[in-house]
Design a protein around this nucleic acid. Structure first.
Lengths: 129, 129
DNA sequence: TTATATGTATTATTTCAAATAGTACACTTA
DNA sequence: TAAGTGTACTATTTGAAATAATACATATAA
């Protein structure tokens, strides 16, 4: 469900944040659904509970989940809400990347060709769902 | 010439690497041109010479520069060579980013629209050169 | 009520990469 | 010869991340 790459430059708690967001955006976790407890997830991933707590606290700060003392932690964002946020974030990254490609003299049509190919391959892969 | 962001998550020596590559790709530094010495650049940027040495060593490993003991360090890559390498790297990033955008259900046409806008703005900015 | 689970908070310690500090040596050039 | 190069080496410092160990308030099921 959640995979940690210990060799990554990205801190573990950030990987957990990204991972949980992905699960929500992909529909695996739904609004108000309960998340694994801090201690349980820590045991599953074999990492320190404080690291999970740090990830959950940040997710709560972002409104992606909410926590009830004694009860547990729950998804606080709908698929659509979070997807919109993520989309804007990625489009911002795309804008930066496009500017770099432009300054490196990569033709616009070549950029769009890459995009098109990725989308075509994705469509190919999901054709038989 | 070279700017360091001390708040960045990216290590200083990596920022130096990226910075020098940019200077080559933008034509500021030309093939076989001499780079600032390890000690000189360290003084300019007010950082430790060992950090510069680490950046230079990595750049030499990548073939971007070459060093002659007692002489100095020099640009080892042509603008075209390095530009080609950089282009491939960025196109790889674009591929990854497109896949994410696709999985987030962002329409392909919207992606290309962003690309187009960035290119249009760049053209606008360089129209009066 | 009791026991167990939950979130939350706190302090101390460890770990590790990055950066610094200092020195030394071989080479080139003016 | 003197000053400037690259290069190598060891030691130390720094700071974020992660771990370790408790503690406390709350909720829930037995």
């Amino acid at each position: 469900m959640i995979l940690i790459d210990y060799k990554s430059r990205k801190p573990i708690y950030e990987q957990i944040i990204d991972n949980i967001k992905s699960l929500i955006v992909s529909g695996v976790l739904q609004r108000d659904e309960q998340l694994p407890s801090v201690r349980q997830l820590a045991q599953e991933l074999a990492i320190n509970p404080n690291t999970i707590q740090k990830a959950y606290a940040e997710l709560e700060r972002q409104g992606v989940l909410y926590s009830l003392k004694g009860r547990g932690s729950f998804v606080g964002s709908s698929l659509q809400e979070l997807r919109t946020v993520q989309q804007k974030e990625l489009l911002g990254q795309l804008s930066d990347l496009s500017a770099e490609l432009c300054s490196l003299q990569v033709p616009q049509q070549e950029v769009c060709a890459v995009v098109q190919q990725v989308y075509a391959e994705a469509k190919e892969g999901t054709a038989h769902d």
